[in-house]
Amino acid sequence: MPTSASIEGRDEPAVIRARGLIKTFGHVAALQGVDLELYGGEVVALLGDNGAGKSTLTKCLCGVYQPDAGELELAGRPVQLRSIRDAEAYGISVVYQDLALAPDLTVLENIFLGHELLRTGLLGRAGALARGEMAQRADAALQALGIDLPSVRIPVSELSGGQRQAVAIARATMWTRAGILMDEPTAALGTRQSDIVANLITATAARGLGVMVISHDLPRVMEIATRVIVLRHGRVVLDTPAQGLSRRDVVDAMVGYAEEVHG
């Protein structure tokens, strides 16, 4: 079994620790016993060919799927996630590739959707929004991540794809305490906008959050990752620090060449 090089010497429990995750769909064994950890402050690139089990794994980690077997620990506590809400309650959130924001709502309303701040007193009891306070907090969060928007009070439909993904990531960082899973965060974006999002991912990890990125954009994800995990046929075939790792090593692991040579 491959060993994770980054486990030793950690004081904090892993944000996510999975042991022996198994998930099958009919005859398809999507995950065949996956072990992995995600720690605060690191950017883990989760790589693998199509059908390697990346999406299934991510969905098991955020409560969309329930694994058939295996253990999941979040922040050192064993958990069973039944929904995305459960995962969010444990401090894990997800950023999706299709930029799931409400286009007609403002940036502000999107960032706070489901977490709205209410005014104090009677008006708050009636559900009145504290838009001023929300705007301040949103501005602060965007600024901390270096995101530059014309205003938080414009509809998301008027933003570029990169700006939308930035808002989605800012939204996730605001409401998560521990880890963010990103499913193809740059798939819908051009080069320049992908760069912006890549910087944003680094900035997010620098704030102490654990970030796991699924991406097909190998060069870019290798640039920002601190650790690389490669899945193949539902198993982890490589789990190693990104430093010194060549793109060739990764591709070999993805297509199974490494297995043939070493195993």
Partner: peptide, 12 residues
């Protein structure tokens, strides 16, 4: 806001 969110993007 939530009413409009339902209509703008049910998924989100």
């Amino acid at each position: 806001v939530r009413i409009l969110a339902l209509g703008s993007s049910r998924e989100s």
